[in-house]
């Protein structure tokens, strides 16, 4: 009951939050220097041609007018057109967002598999080699740039050992992609029963996923370790230990009480990676959402940028709502 009321109350804020995000990002994007008309028509365009194109695109009005037009289109589900791809932004993002989501979801899952066990072990065995290892790991993961690691992995596994596929997208050119349903290639291949495509997709995912996971396991490891260390020192765990409860029970108890902060760091990483994976996307020619947005920024192509911001915002709100639901499930103090 409480939870339904909570979700209802949260949903009330989604509208205003989104409006605020659109407004701010619209104004910020408009501040970026660069005239799209000049970009589109090239250096030999005449003044009249430029003016005409500006008028056509609605760029001759004030910023308020432009924002109003954008909002009106948005309400009808029209995010505008990208002049670079000449396609509606919505259609572009419908392909590119799943590409990014597929990548970062798998990466974070793998990062969790690396970070949590290491963090727990490092916290419990304080004077062990595991602790030393995880200290260095945390330091390295925090200081290595992800794209650099991606390049190294490509060099090792593609160039030298030739076990990984070429870093050129999400699937082999020679393989027929499955019919797009969700645009998540794994899911679509499964729906279509296209095993060849599934195999190729998974193969292409390995290196970028490992790259992102190895880097992002760092903060997860650190957070798990720090929280667990604090937990293991706490009175409640000390008492459980004194009662003579088995080690595994004590560790599980401590971990359960550390879970909220692990969930928090994962949700933060998830939101961050939607745009933050862009360098890795570029290295692997992934064609993801971040890459799309960056190209938009570089070429004064506003609509893709705004569309990306809007999509990311909605996704972040969904993630935070999910996280709140997870808190509800794991923490009786909130459940009440």
């Amino acid at each position: 009951m409480r939870i339904l009321r909570y979700i209802g109350r949260r949903s009330l804020f989604i509208g205003p939050q989104l409006f605020g995000i659109i407004l701010v990002s619209f104004l910020l994007v408009k501040l970026i220097p660069g005239d799209p008309a000049v970009m589109m028509l090239g250096p030999f365009a005449t003044e009249e041609q430029l003016a005409m194109l500006n008028e056509e695109m609605g760029l001759d009005g004030t910023i308020i007018d432009q924002f109003w037009i954008y909002l009106q289109n948005l309400v009808q589900g029209d995010l505008g057109t990208s002049w670079q791809t000449t396609k509606p932004v919505f259609d572009d993002l419908a392909i590119r967002f799943p590409a990014t989501l597929e990548l970062i979801t798998l990466s974070l899952l793998l990062a969790l598999l690396i970070g949590i066990p290491l963090g727990v072990a490092a916290a419990y065995f304080k004077r062990s080699i595991v602790k030393k290892f995880s200290d260095y790991y945390g330091l390295l993961a925090g200081s290595l740039p992800d794209f650099w690691l991606g390049l190294i992995l490509i060099y090792l596994f593609y160039t030298i050992m030739q076990v990984a596929p070429a870093p050129l997208g999400r699937i082999d050119f020679a393989v027929l992609p499955p019919a797009p349903v969700t645009n998540f290639l794994i899911i679509d291949s499964l729906i279509a029963g296209n095993w060849q495509a599934l195999w190729s997709t998974l193969g292409h995912l390995v290196l970028p996923v490992v790259t992102l996971a190895v880097i992002n396991a760092g903060p997860i490891l650190k957070m798990t370790q720090a929280t667990m260390e604090r937990m293991l020192e706490s009175d409640l765990i000390r008492y459980a230990e004194m009662c003579g409860l088995p080690k595994s029970v004590v560790i599980r108890k401590a971990f359960r009480n550390s879970l909220p902060s692990v969930v928090t760091i994962v949700s933060v990483l998830y939101g961050f990676l939607i745009g933050g994976a862009v360098l890795v996307e570029i290295v692997f020619s992934w064609g993801g959402a971040g890459q799309y947005a960056v190209q938009g920024v570089l070429n004064a192509d506003i609509n893709p940028v705004l569309g990306f911001v809007l999509f990311s915002a909605i996704l972040s709100l969904i993630i935070y709502l999910l996280v709140d639901l997870i808190y509800f499930a794991i923490d009786p103090r909130i459940r009440g």
Binding site: Y239, M242, C243, G244, L245, N257, I330
Partner: peptide, 28 residues
């Protein structure tokens, strides 16, 4: 046995009171 200074910090927030009280008995 031991009773702590901070009751809130010595009780597992995830465990119902009944089970918390039973905790020392579990390993006996």
């Amino acid at each position: 046995q031991l009773v702590f200074q901070e009751p809130a910090e010595s009780l597992d927030p995830q465990v119902r009171i009944g089970n918390t009280i039973a905790e020392p008995l579990r390993s006996m």
